[in-house]
Amino acid sequence: MSKDAVTFTIDGVEVKAKPDQTIMEAADAAGIYIPRLCYHKDLLPGGHCRVCTVRVNGRPANACTFPVNSGIVVENDTEELKALRRDIIEMLFVEGNHYCPSCEASGKCELQAMAYRLELLTPQMPYAWPKRELDATHPDVYLDRDRCILCGRCVRASVQLDGKRVFGFENRGAQKRIAVDSATGMGDTDLSAKDRAASICPTGCLTIKRQGYLTPVGKRPYDKVPIGSDIEKKQAAG
């Protein structure tokens, strides 16, 4: 750690960070898990989902975009923030069409895993049942918008990691949706199943064809341990 390291606290625990880090990056390095959905360590933060909302000196802020600063007081694991995050997850469930029992992402889905971690037994807000369009035109990848939570990971990954522009957002508000760079469907874009964008989706919205249900129930990533356990393990190991 260089001498210009900054020191701050998360839930009273002292954390040392590099000055150019965000709260999320510093917390991850320190083995403190801040719940998140749209954030991915290989992408620039989007600040879309707000699940990583923490309080910085009492004010709500995105942990994924907020830079660290010496002496800031960050609250993360509080009942208030947990309830707020649970509400966001619940809204994402009812505004999409998420049929967990028949979804090939079940067990590795980060939306579902976040619901488990935040102890959401079931969404109780009114379901919206929106009409969403499925795109199966690509030979190797499905785009099932029923499962889309508009995290924008595919949009960012295509540009930042694959050097392409396959995905984008179109429309606004409740009509906002993931669009592909072709009027005739994803099959006519230059997306490859090997692209990072094709497998970076936190839910089952973008899935590689002929790969579903390969992992048996009980051996999927979040069957036995909550999401974020890998980050917290770092802390336990010292």
Binding site: N97, Y99, C100, S102, Y127, K131, D146
Partner: peptide
């Protein structure tokens, strides 16, 4: 809890 698989007809 959610309508489940039969609710796939809801859209």
């Amino acid at each position: 809890l959610t309508g489940g698989v039969p609710a796939m007809r809801n859209t």
